[in-house]
């Protein structure tokens, strides 16, 4: 048990606990904050595994941008707390199926390859090395992901655009 292993398990525990709290909170803002804590844990894990660049991106993109947007929405719409069971059966069952499927697939993937169980030596990837690796070996996946994001962006724009007649403000400005 080296100190790195101890740190790993401590952080993993933090992530699992924070995520569990995030899923079960009724107050949406609290849930968002626990999820942010979980992302912090993930970033620490990345840093521990020698990927400071990924750790920084995790904080900037997930904790700093996506969760802020969530928070923004929650603050704007002010949800009412619903009485009754927290997870309706209709949501609980699909969730369990998806989790079980994910667990099965990932354990086959990790367990099928004996190299997956041998510990890797400690290393640290510099941002430049990471970028070169990503864009030389996985450029296609990166491009597909960016296309997907572009489609989502255009879709959000189309949905969000409101067609409306000239309002009082614009009429006033027109000569």
């Amino acid at each position: 048990m080296s100190i790195l292993t101890l740190l790993f398990y401590a952080i993993a525990l933090l992530i699992v606990a924070a995520t569990a709290m995030a899923v079960t909170r009724r107050n949406m803002v609290h849930a968002v904050l626990y999820l942010v804590l979980s992302f912090f844990g993930t970033a620490m894990l990345f840093y521990l595994l020698g990927a400071p660049f990924l750790a920084a991106l995790e904080i900037i993109i997930y904790a700093g941008a996506i969760m802020v947007l969530f928070l923004f929405l929650i603050m704007m719409i002010r949800l009412k707390k619903l009485p009754g069971m927290f997870f309706p059966v209709g949501q609980l069952l699909p969730a369990i199926f998806i989790c079980a499927g994910f667990l099965a697939v990932s354990s086959v993937l990790v367990g099928g390859n004996p190299e997956g169980w041998t510990p890797m030596p400690a290393a640290q990837a510099s941002p430049a090395a990471f970028g070169v690796y990503l864009f030389q070996t996985h450029w296609l996946a990166v491009e597909i992901a960016s296309m997907l994001l572009l489609v989502a962006l255009v879709g959000a724009y189309v949905l969000g655009r409101r067609v409306r007649g000239p309002s009082a403000d614009t009429r006033k400005e027109a000569p």
Binding site: F53, A56, I59, I60, A63
Partner: peptide
Amino acid sequence: LNVGLLFVFA
């Protein structure tokens, strides 16, 4: 840090 700028940004 070798990601100092990103640290500031985060």
